[in-house]
């Protein structure tokens, strides 16, 4: 149980944000109304996605250094988990956009670049499945991953800031500034981000452990 403390912490943090996110006072803003509470659930999906993608690049670099097959497996399963969180982020954002911006997919630079970066990671999966030989597959996909990660960061955090965007903090002023996020909301938002990051890492480790067992079985057969 002592090794599971962070899983329990993640559960408590997100449970707190589910309850606090619905009940704690939020600022009264036009257009957004109560939908501002989506911030506690939609945005952490993206944070979780970015963190598992970061874990993935780190293990891709480690793989290139060590040639240890397990590092490659962590990199794949991190990307697999990240894609799920990316799709949940896109879908939840589309629902929110439909009711506040008037359309599920307004031509917003951040939406388009989020879609492109998700496609980039889908391409990683396609690339892997197209190479038969294991070491070659691991090596080429690790190199692809190292290029994909900075491209994703540029797409999500730099390009939308250069033009006008509907997302707060884009097109000029940086996000999460002191005047952007209400003080009350920080008490729920930060635990939500941390909680969901931990949960995404947890899901990733479960996938990795299943993959390890599958891998062992394949080698025995």
């Amino acid at each position: 149980m002592y090794k599971n403390w962070w899983k329990i912490l993640a559960s408590i943090l997100v449970l707190y944000t589910v309850i606090g996110g619905l009940l704690i006072q939020v600022p009264e803003l036009p257009i957004l109304h109560e939908s501002i509470r989506n911030l506690y659930f939609h945005v952490p999906m993206w944070f979780a996605m970015i963190v598992v993608y970061l874990v993935s690049v780190i293990y891709s670099i480690k793989y290139l250094n060590s040639g240890n097959e397990n590092h490659d497996l962590i990199a794949v399963e991190s990307v697999n988990t990240g894609i799920v969180f990316g799709f949940i982020g896109l879908a939840s954002g589309m629902i929110w956009a439909n009711y506040t911006w008037g359309s599920p997919w307004p031509n917003d630079p951040k939406l388009n670049s989020a879609a492109i970066s998700t496609l980039m990671y889908l391409a990683y999966i396609v690339l892997r499945s197209s190479i038969e030989e294991e070491q070659k597959r691991a090596k080429i996909s690790a190199i692809y991953n190292i290029f994909a990660f900075p491209a994703m960061v540029v797409l999500l955090f730099i390009l939308p800031r250069l033009t006008d965007s509907l997302h707060p903090g884009n097109g000029g002023n940086p996000g999460f500034g002191t005047y952007d996020l209400d003080r009350n909301m920080r008490f729920v938002f930060y635990p939500a981000v941390l909680g969901w990051i931990l949960i995404s890492v947890w899901i990733m480790t479960i996938r990795y452990r299943i993959r390890l067992i599958e891998n062992k079985q394949n080698q025995i057969d």
Partner: peptide
């Protein structure tokens, strides 16, 4: 969460 914990345990 309970579901995640049971999967974890089975693994």
């Amino acid at each position: 969460i309970v579901y995640l914990f049971t999967i974890d345990k089975r693994l």
